[in-house]
């Protein structure tokens, strides 16, 4: 029998600790498949965040470093400067990157540090039990906004791709969604472009994945995919926010 689709060597055999249907598993696989296809597994260093993906280093079959809350871009900057021959990436959630780590990501992007950031936006704090995140949508319920987020109390959700695209540092910024097979294929192309742009030495690359959190949204995984399309995609438009310059 000829294999058509197999689980990538870039992932370890350990079963992930994520809830059923969580798209962290899909995002992990897309990144690791791309590294495997590009032959980079042996020269990549990843930086794991705090959040549900705090133990990503157990699932990703590359050298990994754990960072404190939101500090992954600072740790990755250091690693890349000491090891300029390595491919460095950070993998961060919305609570980690858009809240406590806002300073780190903004300055790493502004400096144009040569690493990639993969940002998982699921509109909620997953690991701590579904509290309001900076990316929680207006009207969305969470355990700290039980009647839904309001603009008066919490302001508008942060759009990280748009914010980062105001800076001169980043070489490539794209937002993709993990909501159906077609969009997952597009997401993989974005991951590949992020690593290719990084390898060409153009600088910081950033990919935002719109993801689902079925457990904290209180929906079944297929319904959560629908919710993502109906609610998240209008507020967080998909697309390329910074195209790498052609030389």
């Amino acid at each position: 029998m000829k294999p058509v689709f197999q689980y990538t060597k870039g992932m370890t055999e350990v079963s992930t600790s994520y809830c059923p249907g969580c798209t962290h598993g899909v995002a992990h696989r897309l990144i690791m498949e791309t590294l495997d296809e590009m032959g980079l597994l042996g020269k990549t260093i990843g930086v794991a965040p705090i959040g549900c993906s705090v133990v990503a280093h157990q699932f990703m079959n590359v050298d990994m470093c754990e960072s404190a809350h939101g500090r992954a871009p600072a740790v990755a900057s250091g690693i890349r400067r000491v090891h300029p021959d390595k491919v460095v990436f950070t993998y961060q959630g919305d609570g980690d990157l858009a809240s406590i780590g806002m300073g780190e990501i903004m300055h790493a992007a502004a400096r144009g540090e040569k690493f990639s950031t993969f940002f998982i936006n699921n509109c909620i704090y997953g690991m701590t039990g579904g509290q309001m995140a900076p990316t929680t949508l207006i009207g969305q319920r969470s355990t700290t906004c039980v009647d839904g987020r309001t603009r008066e109390q919490a302001g508008m959700p942060l759009k990280m791709c748009e914010i980062l695209s105001t800076l001169d540092g980043p070489a490539y910024i794209e937002r993709v969604a993990l909501c159906d097979p077609a969009n997952i294929r597009k997401a993989k192309k974005a991951v590949r472009k992020a690593f290719e742009t990084l390898l060409s030495g153009k600088g910081f690359t950033f990919v935002e994945f719109l993801s689902i959190c079925p457990t904290n949204w209180g929906l079944t995984p297929p319904k959560a995919m629908e919710w993502l399309k109906e609610n998240m995609m209008p507020y967080y438009p998909l697309g390329v926010y910074r195209e790498p310059e052609v030389q």
Binding site: K2, S15, V26
Partner: peptide, 21 residues
């Protein structure tokens, strides 16, 4: 039909697809 949709959306790497020869 071997479209791989199931394997692409599977978050847990539980699906492998082979083509019969």
């Amino acid at each position: 039909i071997g479209c791989q949709s199931c394997a692409l959306v599977c978050p847990d790497g539980a699906i492998e697809i082979y083509e019969e020869e």
